[in-house]
Write a protein that binds this DNA or RNA. Sequence first.
DNA 1: ACAAAAGTGTTTTTTATACACCCATGC
DNA 2: GCATGGGTGTATAAAAAACACTTTTGT
Lengths: 244, 244
Amino acid sequence: MPGRGTKQVNKQTLANFKVGVDNAIFSVDTQQNRVLVLLVMRQEEPHIGQWSLPGTLVREGESLEDAAQRILAEKIRVNNLYLEQLYTFGGPERDPRESPISFGVRYLSVSYFALVRFEEAELIADGVSGIAWYPIEHLPQLAFDHNKIVEYGYRRLRNKLEYSPVAFDVLPEVFTLSDLYQLYTTVLGENFSDYSNFRSRLLKLGFLSDTGLKVSRGAGRPASLYRFDAEAFAPLKDKPLVFI
Amino acid sequence: MPGRGTKQVNKQTLANFKVGVDNAIFSVDTQQNRVLVLLVMRQEEPHIGQWSLPGTLVREGESLEDAAQRILAEKIRVNNLYLEQLYTFGGPERDPRESPISFGVRYLSVSYFALVRFEEAELIADGVSGIAWYPIEHLPQLAFDHNKIVEYGYRRLRNKLEYSPVAFDVLPEVFTLSDLYQLYTTVLGENFSDYSNFRSRLLKLGFLSDTGLKVSRGAGRPASLYRFDAEAFAPLKDKPLVFI
DNA sequence: ACAAAAGTGTTTTTTATACACCCATGC
DNA sequence: GCATGGGTGTATAAAAAACACTTTTGT
């Protein structure tokens, strides 16, 4: 039974962990057709002065998701929110703080994926730390491996959009069908579907309720404003839906 | 700027983490039409004498996936393997070792999802610790929150099966089309598709190559043996495929 | 009047589903 | 020769994709 007798040694070589939570918070600016990521400027070493994802270390008695909620609430005020765990990044070389001389302390990052409504999201600037939305195509070099986390999150966003109703967590409360279509083209690219087919498919699913209101944006016929009807969607929740 | 002045207090209340990796290792017994999970009997407190997922604490300089590979290799010998990160479970109440008197040490579990070929998988019994395949419908009460992890992993397995070629990591090197069909019905249930439709869909995709060999199993016409052709599949890798 | 944006409908093509039937083997 | 599992083909239904056309507004 090799290994059994070396229990002591094994225990000694265990990595020592600090666990942090980093949020990849996405929103979509339907006006400008851009996918945005929330970044904050680091105020502490390491990587001081570099942009990074909003993150925090987990406190005693706090669940991972609680920590994700907490750091999110510190940076941004929203009414609506989609939040789910993304991935856990824990390679030994991801953080310079884990050096041989610092007793091998390892910083593990459990990342969370969040979606918020751009229009209603209110950034909390405390005057000291920088905070800003960045378009996904023009991200700066981020601290740690946060560029990788964003990339991973963006992939998740594209996938989610195809088979789950996350779009309605990103759009304003009421929206036009072209808003919805714009959102899909912005995230998924131009060629995912014809507008009129997209339109009829979505309407046929039956969880978009016409508010009766119309909105006129420049020239052209005014568009009907729709609202996502969560109750009408509920029975479809576990069905393999296609939104594309 | 509330919070900034209380930095000391915050640091004091940070949770202290030990990070473990737990593997949900699945295989499918095509003979008996059963989905199996690998369990090991715990030799240490807490939960000594209870079945659990094979797990380990992460060592210095070791990545999470390395740890997953290591514990897997300690329990089972395989040629082929599919492995991916599943989820990170880190609620404060998941492990009795995190009690107030033990300085709030928290055991966080990064779980990995693995698929192996049942026929070629050789369990490593060290004579002391119990190790066994359990059918997923008859799992015992597992240690910690491992039942939840298995449930989560099983959901992943069902999803993966529908849109990725993981089945070929579970089947033997060569297999008949009914083996493949059996595997799908075993995991996904009886009514997912007609055999003949399943058959033609899979063959039309073009990555199953007929070995020319036949195998006869009792009465009935002998079945052709196929092999998964990874090269023929490669160009389809990023396409949204449907295997169901 | 006409361009622009919204919305409707029809045709064509592709894919899914159901199921009927032939084939090769063991007993 | 007939039951058993393997394998092929066809007819029908449904869904996806393409695109032509109408409606309502601003200018």
